[in-house]
Design a binder for these strands. Structure first.
Length: 1082
RNA sequence: AGGCACGUAGCUCAGUGGGAGAGCACUACCUUGACACGGUAGGGGUCCGCAGUUCAAUCCUGCGCGUGCCUACCA
């Protein structure tokens, strides 16, 4: 039972109560039923990391999803919003390890794998709870009884199954590859986890002595590097095979560039051409000589280590750059690695790094030094020997690990990969299902999915909203780069492969024979050769030489329990690595639903079962889903991989729509983030303004632009002033500011020891709160006027003009909101709803019916229409501002238990389950809408006249309107409204109107509006003069257009006619105003 | 370097091949029986610059300037 409607809008009380009602009634639960696939709506929540609290980016993401989910739920779709959190392997382990070190001074090796994992689970439990609470505070209507975590048993089962299938299909392999190595976390990181940052550095030119130079031959070759310590791992020096041709080619290319270049660039490009030409004259002979020496097998002495390395020719050495020669460090540079692959017979590969970033024994006397210390030593030692030719100061883009913020090193190591490229025999998607289909490769399958003419076996296609994001998705996939899925961490899904390293075919045979037989097909075995090629056991002859790995993938946890001991006894060891977080995330659209075995899927106590209870299981009912909502930075990392995994495992897309929303920036246009101190905490906004206010503004900001700026203010802890951070100067660090009022320093991160911390917020959310306040008060007014309202069928003929008008406008609003939401335009949708509610319902309808409300004979019909419109408005606004509408819904149902016009509306105890408004075309009355627009216009003009002449609001004045008879007929029909709203003592229509004293005049289209008894002729004269001037200008412009023969001939007839009407109207207006002006002067 | 966006009122942003819009801020008046988190009205803009297409350009095309993001590379 609702208590009495409070006089003021208090979001905190409302939101707490509504949340309780929703959660205790399980209002968001998704239950499979008889509704067909096209009446189902599924959104998989992009899983937040369990590393910390949510920020505004999450708020945007969650609100967008909730908006769609609530809309579809009210439209009658069987709706699932699947919530959950991500174990976020590296990020979480890094945070917990850091805390362990700070609090206890221990590293992970001190406490061991099991203990570390136990602690991370404890951390996860705490933060997941916090995240869920925040999402519930925002109003997220996700099915919390289905909450998942990527390391839950049900998700782990899906990970194992998907891995096993990929492994069997040779789509997962293990190989030596150069990866980005995080020396602090000591793991490989993906390209996407690396960000580039410019760092002040040097460009060193090193001299390597030539071995036994003959007469006329150079004594040194010069190479340049930004990382001199890598020279210890050099295995060659390369020069271009044909420097003369290569230079000629780049000179030609440069000439083309100059002819295409704009004026501003030209000078720089000319300079570059001159440089190339000078090089072609002066250096090419030397380079050709080096190429010749290289072909002759000449060698170079690597200084410091005094190692002989070959001089080779390879086109990677660009004659136009540096010295024209390049040092080759295959184990620590991707390009050099490629060179090594081309010249494997000539040069070796030498890893000089330990996993922790210190140099290993290959670095000779430098072994044990950290890479940066080694850099200094190497430079000093080379300098001492006169082997440094030059040092340039230079800004260098350095790759940093996103998690540890330390520079990554290219590092050669054994890693697991998913093969993204095309395979000779292609790939079977959805094997064993009705949607089985063939594709050339995994990446290609995902690329095809956005092609306009492509359809999945189920008739679906992937589309991006806005469409432009498809291009980036395709471009990324088109590289078809293999995906490194192994991480050298302890936190994550362990790679389910057992390996035994074997030397020679005989040992391979013995190892294979020792693998347990599994009748259920739960084990799959490949023999991997030195290149990572996966061979069947019998493809390796017993007399084969070389090193092999026998790899056994174990399909399930049960199979592992059954066979682990036997595998261990046979000399197999389980891979110590864990999977990239995105591997389990990629399976999210189906791992959460119980795949591969929903009937047997384990869920936590109290959670919804996923199958096995007779009805359809969750996976078959809710897969494929509908829409994925995200910011653009995650399209490649996650969206693309979900598409791939969905297509591969099921032959079907996981969703058809990808809605990419804006990112939220601060007032300077910088991405908000906690670490920059410009981030706003949604919880703080909710505390200050309410969740509905936050949601309202977020919807209003999502206009389809790329980014949204949200100016941020801090509350000065010293003087409590609101400080606009865009205007404030920094204090002694970039995380502190000086108050613009009292000049005291404050800290926005809350981490500075001696500087007081300020809370960061944005006053833009006041708009949302004002909106909610308006809604609250409008509803309060309406409800106080309803009494205990009964229902009786209303005939249209019984309705007053304003009733028919507001109902007609309501139909327009319903239809426009639907259209905008369907096209992913939340700002436009909320704008229509707001304009209807505020601009039409509040500003006009409520005002228009006030007189009727005081009259018992007229009140009942107005009340019933009002209850109906309020009902529809609450439903229409519910997806945007769910709390306040839900709260008001409760009151409305009490005051008016049955609402409707001719027939009662469908009802529900909770607004979130109420049927979505539908358009009744019979209620649309376009001519009446036009009439009322005229009436509003006239009222506006009359009010303007009152304001111009400082007429007190209560004073009633006489007015007159002159104009064409059919127009005046309209005003005659609505004369009462006009008198009321413009506070008139009398309204005279037509030219027969009696003259008004001291009349002020307005002209509007073909009308002349006069307001009598206005006191100050001087003010009016001045104003009329200004208006006349403006009208004359407009008239001239129009007449000029019409005097232009080509305009009259070529412009469409209606445009020309419109221009003529305009001239006529303007002339008439000028005439009447001139007359009035003369009268005032007389 | 390449690609994708963007540049409209003081701020944040809509919008359109034919008379420039909203919200906030600002100004004036109003505490009128829902709401001052409100109402009524008002001021404020070479629609980044230049050229072209067009009868007509803020909108279309090209160039330039500025900003943001993505991708790649820099031995």
């Amino acid at each position: 039972m609702a208590t009495e409607l409070a006089k003021t809008y208090e979001p905190r009380a409302i939101e707490a109560r509504v949340t309780e009602r929703w959660l205790s009634s399980g209002a968001f639960a998704a239950v499979p039923d008889g509704r067909p696939p096209e009446r189902r709506y599924v959104i998989m929540m992009p899983l937040p990391n369990v590393t910390g609290a949510l920020h505004m980016g999450h708020a945007m993401d969650n609100v967008m999803q909730d908006l769609l989910v609530r809309w579809h739920r009210m439209r009658g779709d069987n709706t699932l919003w699947q919530p959950g959190t991500d174990h976020a392997g590296i990020a979480t382990q890094a945070v917990v390890e850091k805390r362990l070190f700070e609090l206890e001074g221990k590293t992970r090796h001190d406490i061991g794998r099991e203990e570390l994992v136990r602690r991370i689970w404890a951390w996860k439990d705490e933060y997941q709870q916090r995240i869920v609470r925040q999402q519930q505070q925002m109003g997220c209507s996700a099915d919390w009884q289905r909450q998942r975590f990527t390391m839950d048993e049900v998700c782990s089962a899906a990970v194992r199954e998907a891995f096993f299938r990929l492994f069997c299909d040779r789509l997962i392999y293990r190989g030596d590859r150069l990866v980005n190595w995080d020396c602090q976390l000591q793991t490989a990181v993906a390209d996407d986890e690396v960000y580039h940052e410019p760092v002040a550095g040097h460009f060193w030119h090193l001299r390597y002595p030539l071995k036994d130079p003959g007469p006329g031959e150079p004594t040194h070759v010069v190479v340049a590097t930004t990382r001199p310590e890598t020279m210890l791992g050099d295995t060659a020096v390369a020069c271009h095979p044909d420097p003369r041709a290569a230079l000629a080619a780049s000179i030609a290319a440069q000439r083309d560039k100059i002819s295409a270049a704009g004026a501003k660039e030209r000078a720089a490009e000319e300079e570059e051409l001159a440089r190339l030409e000078a090089r072609a004259r002066e250096q090419v002979t030397g380079l050709e000589q080096l190429a010749a020496l290289a072909r002759a097998g000449k060698r170079v002495i690597l200084p410091l280590l005094e190692r002989e390395i070959p001089l080779i020719v390879d086109p990677w050495a660009k004659p136009e750059l540096g010295s024209g020669c390049v040092k080759i460090t295959p184990a620590h540079d991707p390009n050099d690695y490629a060179v090594w692959q081309r010249h494997r017979d000539q040069l070796g590969i030498l890893n000089i790094l330990n996993p922790d970033g210190t140099l290993n024994r290959n670095a000779g006397p430098y072994a044990g030094l950290d890479r940066f210390a080694a850099r200094e030593r190497v430079v000093a030692d080379l300098q001492a020997r006169g082997l440094i030719e030059a040092i340039e100061e230079r800004e260098i883009e350095i790759g940093h690990s996103d998690r540890s913020k330390t520079p990554v090193e290219p590092y050669l190591s054994k890693q697991w990969f998913v093969r993204m490229g095309d395979l000779p025999g292609g790939v079977t998607c959805g094997r064993g299902t009705a949607k089985e289909r063939h594709t050339t490769g995994l990446a290609q399958a995902a690329i095809d999915a956005v092609r306009a003419d492509w359809r999945s076996p189920g008739g679906l296609r992937l589309s991006f909203h806005p469409e432009r994001y498809a291009a980036g998705y395709v471009a990324w996939l088109a590289e078809k780069r293999d995906w490194c899925i192994s991480r050298q961490l302890w936190w994550g899904h362990r790679i389910p492969v057992w390996t035994r390293v074997c030397t020679g075919g005989g040992e391979v045979r013995a190892a294979v024979d020792a693998v347990p037989r599994d009748a259920g097909g739960a084990l799959h075995l490949w023999v991997s050769d030195a290149d990572g090629q996966q061979l069947t056991a019998d493809a390796v002859p017993t007399d084969a030489d070389g090193s092999f790995e026998v790899q056994v993938c174990v399909r399930s946890k049960a199979a592992e329990a059954a066979h682990a001991a036997a595998l261990a006894a046979a000399g197999f060891a389980q891979d110590p690595d864990v999977l990239d977080t995105w591997f389990s995330s990629a399976l999210w659209p189906f791992s959460t639903l119980g795949w591969p075995n929903p009937a047997a899927a384990a869920v936590n106590p109290g959670q919804t079962r996923l199958g096995g209870d007779g009805g359809p299981d969750s996976f078959s009912y809710y897969y494929p889903g509908s829409c994925l909502v995200t910011a653009r930075d995650i399209i490649t990392l996650w969206v693309a991989r979900m598409i791939i995994m969905g297509l591969y495992n099921h032959g079907e897309l996981p969703f058809t729509d990808c809605f990419v929303h804006a990112k939220i920036l601060d007032g300077k246009g910088v991405t908000m983030s906690k670490s920059k101190g410009n981030g706003i905490d949604p919880a703080e906004i909710i505390r200050q303004y309410g969740a509905d206010a936050m949601r309202y503004l977020i919807c209003d900001m999502e206009t389809g632009m790329q980014d949204v700026r949200l100016p941020v203010q801090a509350t000065c802890p010293t003087c409590q002033a609101k400080v606009e951070l865009t205007d404030a100067e920094h204090g002694h660090t970039i995380f502190t500011y000086l108050c613009t009022a009292c000049h005291a320093e404050f800290d926005v991160l809350g981490t500075m020891p001696n500087v007081p911390a300020a809370s960061v917020t944005s006053d833009r959310f006041e708009v949302g709160r004002a909106f909610c306040n308006k809604l609250w008060n409008a509803a309060r007014f309406a409800l106080s006027n309803l009494g205990q309202l009964g229902f009786s069928p209303l005939d249209r003929s019984a309705l007053a003009a304003e009733d028919r008008w507001i109902l007609s406008r309501l139909q327009r609003a319903i239809s426009a909101v639907d259209e905008h939401l369907g096209a992913y335009r939340p700002a436009a949708a909320v704008g229509v709803a707001r304009d209807f509610f505020w601009g039409e319902l509040c500003d006009w309808y409520l005002e228009l019916i006030k007189p009727r409300m005081r009259d018992d004979s007229q009140a009942p019909i107005a009340r019933q229409v009002l209850a109906h419109v309020l009902d529809q408005v609450l439903r229409l606004l519910h997806p945007f501002v769910p709390f306040i509408t839900e709260a008001l819904w409760e009151f409305l149902r009490e005051q008016a238990p049955v609402r409707g016009l001719a027939t009662p509306l469908g009802d529900a105890p909770l607004c979130l389950h109420a049927p979505w408004p539908t358009v009744d075309p019979g209620l649309i009355d376009a001519p009446l809408e036009q009439e009322l627009a005229r009436v509003q216009e006239v009222i506006g003009r009359l009010r303007e006249l009152r304001a111009r002449h400082d007429v007190p609001p209560r004073r009633e004045l006489p007015a007159a309107i002159r104009g064409p008879a059919e127009r005046l007929a309209v005003f005659s029909r609505h004369a009462g409204l006009i008198r009321d709203q413009a506070r008139l003592s009398a309204l005279h229509l037509g030219s027969e109107a009696p003259p008004l004293h001291h009349a002020a005049t307005q002209v509007s289209a073909d009308l002349e509006i006069l307001l009598g008894d206005v006191l100050d002729p001087v003010v009016e004269r001045k104003r009329l003069g200004a208006v006349l001037e403006k009208l004359h200008k407009q008239l001239e412009a129009s007449q000029k257009k019409l005097a232009n023969p080509s305009f009259v001939e070529r412009a469409p007839a209606d445009v020309v006619a419109g221009e003529k009407t305009k001239v006529a109207e303007l002339s008439a207006q000028i005439a009447s105003l001139t007359t009035n002006l003369a009268a005032l002067e007389g």
